[in-house]
Simulated scan of single mutants.
Amino acid sequence: MSQIQRFGSWLTKWFTLVVIVWAAVNYFAPQTSLWAKGFTNYFLSIVLFGMGMTLSLDDFKRIVKMPLMVIVGTVAHYLIMPLLAVLLCKVFHLDGMVAVGVILVGCCPSGTSSNVMSFLSRGDVALDVSIGLLSTLLAPLMVPLLMSGLASQYVEIPVEKLFLTALQVVLIPIVLGVTVHTLLGERVSAVTTVMPAVSQVAILLIIGVVVAVNNQKLFTAETAMILPVVMLHNLSGYGLGWLFSRLMFRIYPKGFRYAQQKAITFEVGMQDSALGATLALQAFAANPVVAIPSTFFSVWHNISGSVLASLWRGHDDKYGIPADSHDGRRPVARPIEVGAGAQAEA
């Protein structure tokens, strides 16, 4: 177990670089991962089962304890990212299956990587986890609903297939994971300690499949605009998530403080791209190009999230802004009363 944990720690540290290298391997040697094409839904189920085993009833109680912030953050995610995707498709004149792929990743719940970024930036990790949990639990309903409303102009959306696939790979594994944790308690700790490594390997396998099946289409005129669109999608998500949280701070300053604003920023801008790729491969099996935006997003948002978290933390350290700051402003130094000091010396 300790060897797997060490491997998991190493993989976490270098995950973005490993993803890039692994993608390159599958681009030049697609047979490396083609064997796994029919198993991507099981790989993602393993990831979310592991997520479920790390959850307890307290995680669900937290949603009840701070319902306003969790619900508002979830609504912001499912409102901002899908509409941004549609807007970017219009601006960049994306069409067909490429546009469907961009909108699909925009309709996905928030990614688990956002929890790490929130932690690194000294954000409210508990709020981050709660929003991520609620948005993920709602995914079987929200993804088909949003895709039907926003992407049906490009192609007929297999709503039932999307719903059943999301139910199979998201809701059922999480419920099973929570059930196992509830029944076995601390006895699952030996398994949960190795789940990060297992989850990351599963995500790598999904990425490998997407690159392999799109080997001939990954860098063509049809897909040339996907990477800049994905980058703008993610960065605009951060920006609008931050502006939204600042607006909510003006309305309800007690609940949307500086740490909560960081959490909402990451929760809005980061997507569960592994789910997007899996849904694309299952529901749009005849058009695997739909999965390319999710794969690009998976690589890019880990890079951008790490950079943003580092910049945020560095900014706070430079200006002495504490993690529990009310509004994120620099502390105001109190003026020294020179006269009083002089009188005391006299």
Rank of each mutant, 00 (worst) to 15 (best):
I4F: 00
W10H: 13
T12F: 12
K13D: 06
I20D: 04
A23Q: 11
Q31V: 11
T32D: 10
T40D: 13
T40Q: 13
L44G: 07
S45D: 08
I46Q: 04
L48E: 14
M53Y: 11
M53Q: 11
L55W: 07
L57D: 04
L57K: 07
K61C: 07
K61Y: 09
K65G: 12
P67D: 14
M69A: 15
A76M: 15
A76C: 15
Y78H: 02
L79P: 10
L84A: 03
A85R: 03
V86S: 02
C89A: 06
C89D: 02
F92G: 02
H93P: 00
A99C: 04
V102A: 09
I103M: 07
S110G: 14
V116S: 05
V116D: 01
M117W: 10
M117N: 09
F119L: 13
S121Y: 13
D124K: 07
G132H: 09
L133M: 14
S135A: 11
T136R: 08
T136D: 07
M142W: 02
V143G: 05
L145Q: 03
G149D: 10
G149R: 13
A151V: 01
S152D: 10
E156S: 14
P158A: 05
F163D: 03
A166E: 08
A166F: 06
Q168S: 14
V169R: 11
L171K: 06
P173D: 08
L176N: 10
H181Y: 04
H181Q: 11
L184D: 11
V188L: 13
S189K: 15
T193K: 11
S199G: 10
I203G: 10
L204Y: 13
L205S: 14
V209K: 06
V209T: 08
N215Y: 12
K217F: 11
F219N: 05
A224L: 07
V230N: 02
L232H: 05
H233L: 09
N234L: 01
L235D: 04
S236E: 01
G239D: 06
F244I: 00
F244R: 04
S245H: 03
L247E: 01
R250W: 01
I251S: 01
P253V: 06
G255K: 08
F256E: 02
Y258T: 06
Q260T: 12
Q261N: 03
K262M: 09
F266P: 00
E267W: 04
M270P: 02
Q271S: 03
Q271C: 01
G276P: 04
A277P: 10
A291Y: 04
A291N: 06
T295D: 15
T295P: 09
S298L: 15
S298C: 13
W300N: 07
H301R: 03
V307K: 08
L311I: 08
W312F: 12
D317M: 03
K318R: 08
Y319D: 00
P322E: 03
D324L: 00
D327Y: 01
G328A: 00
P331D: 00
V338K: 14
A342H: 06
A344V: 06
A344Q: 08
